[in-house]
């Protein structure tokens, strides 16, 4: 495992020759050994098209490549860090929540409109994700940032999980999501319970939820 949680807000990454890491630019706190940090002009792996796609999509979080041999400590802005291990599935996360990931993972950008058309777009706006989101696919580990601690909620068939859009962090696995509304007459007269919009996740996988309703 490339990433190890040292405490709630800091991770330790082991860098070995021949294996690269990508991390958010400026997130290095300390390192030991011979490690080099080079800014990625292309903001992550992928060809020119994916670069262009991310630029347009606003999913272009500045990244850097970490190479060499040694250990690197990462952390950013005092946010809580959570390490996710992917085994062939896809993690959907906002680019600005990514702290670091291994090069064995393939980065991509998806248009939310592609998952459910207009409803997908509405969902993106409601959750503050915008029109695009970042995906990471393959085998490897990812470090994700959140405000407050992160907890994982398993999503099982016949047992969908509803998440407050503001507390949603990321999800992985074979999960479909849609925005469900519980808008009743109470909301219309301004006496709502504050839970009118919920993100409904169904299928098989895991959703990551933060202990706060604040954005990063």
């Amino acid at each position: 495992m490339a990433f190890r949680e040292i405490n709630a807000k800091m991770i330790e990454a082991t860098v070995v020759p021949g294996r690269r890491l990508f991390s958010r630019r400026g997130a290095m706190l300390a390192y030991r050994g011979e490690v080099s940090f080079t800014p990625n002009l292309t903001s992550g792996p992928g060809g020119v098209m994916s670069v262009l796609g991310r630029r347009i999509a606003g999913e272009a979080a500045p990244l850097m490549t970490v190479e060499g041999s040694g250990t690197v400590y990462f952390g950013h802005g005092g946010h809580h860090v959570h390490v996710v291990r992917l085994t062939g599935d896809t993690l959907y996360v906002e680019a600005d929540r990514l702290l670091a990931f291994e090069d064995t993972l393939e980065q991509g950008t998806v248009f939310l409109g592609a998952q459910g058309g207009v409803r997908g777009l509405v969902r993106g706006q409601a959750t503050g994700q915008g029109l695009f989101t970042t995906t990471l696919t393959g085998h490897g580990t990812v470090a994700v940032m959140a405000h407050g601690g992160v907890f994982e909620v398993p999503v099982r068939p016949q047992r969908p999980v509803h998440v407050d859009p503001q507390a949603y962090v990321a999800h992985h696995g074979d999960v479909r999501n849609r925005l469900s509304t519980a808008v009743g007459w109470r909301e219309l007269v301004g006496r709502g319970s504050g839970e009118a919009f919920q993100l409904e996740l169904s299928g098989t996988g895991v959703v990551l939820v933060q202990a706060s309703e604040e954005k990063l």
Binding site: V153, V155, R159, P160, V161, H162, V163, D164, A167, A182, S193, G194, E195, V207, V209, Q210, A211, E213
Partner: peptide, 13 residues
């Protein structure tokens, strides 16, 4: 009000 972050099963608010 508004402090729910997630739920599974069936809930009404």
């Amino acid at each position: 009000n508004g402090s729910m972050v997630a739920y599974d099963g069936r809930m009404t608010f």
